[in-house]
Amino acid sequence: MDAAAFLVQLLNGVQSGFLLFLVASGLTLVFGIMGVINLAHGAFYMIGAYLAFWLTGLTGNLLLAVVIGVAALAVLGVVIERLAIGFLYRRDHLQQVLLTFGLILVLDDLQRLIWGSDFHSVPVPDLLSGSVALTTQQDYPVYRLFVSGVCILVALGMFALIRHTRLGMRIRAAAANREMASALGLDVGRLFTLVFALGVALAGFAGMVAAPIGAVYPGMGDRILILAFVIVVIGGIGSVKGAFAGAMLVGIADTFGRVLVPEVASMVMYAVMAAVLVWRPQGLFGRPA
């Protein structure tokens, strides 16, 4: 692989890492703060991609589709948290896995009912459809760079929300000691609803901006879910910083794996996970159990 091809793959890996981070951060937040294992997280990514397809078709504008879609997903998140997830907080992980697995089935069926089983694609917006020259022979699509940029902004926004706002402070307090937070007058139930809706919106947003890069198809959330779990485990469960490091590792390892060792590409990320866990069983940024 020459330097230019290497650079292209590295950019692809980083961009895929950013997208994966958006999905994994929602998963790790919901687990770290509420203690809920949400298997349906990938399904929200899929719903996001379908919403991007559908709303772009309706409005002719991906940006508008994303704005409407994110709002719709946040509302969906609130509804699902109120109707289902909210009952899981004090229950064991088996019950959480059963209910959220059931949610996957429901969301998959809803998707088939509304959009059918065909593969779809979402056009890259005209404004972002060009390429930039990396070297004299090598171009790189602007849209992929745009996706990385947007993901950086969203990630920074999320860090700022958690670190520097009163809402973030309250979320951290509720995560640390739910009883104490409520005894001080914080409505922990409402905070948890918000966090869940945020997680759903992040996963859906990732699905939306990823839609023009790949295809939109039934079950597309499953692979993402597994990747997101691998990332959360690598990074340390509950750590957003860890999710970022894990997402970059997996994004880059997966991308290079496909190019360099295509026969065993699907195993590369698991090898990375195994290596990290041998070295640090609690994950890169996890607290020792």
Binding site: R166, A183, L184, L186
Partner: peptide
């Protein structure tokens, strides 16, 4: 109940370990 004007200083103190002193004071 807390918002009706009751506050708790619990046994073990219940300090939020992931918040700074100032954040502990501001959080509620």
């Amino acid at each position: 109940i807390a918002r009706l004007g009751v506050a708790l200083v619990p046994e073990g103190r219940g300090i939020f370990h992931n918040l700074t002193v100032q954040e502990n004071l501001y959080v509620a």
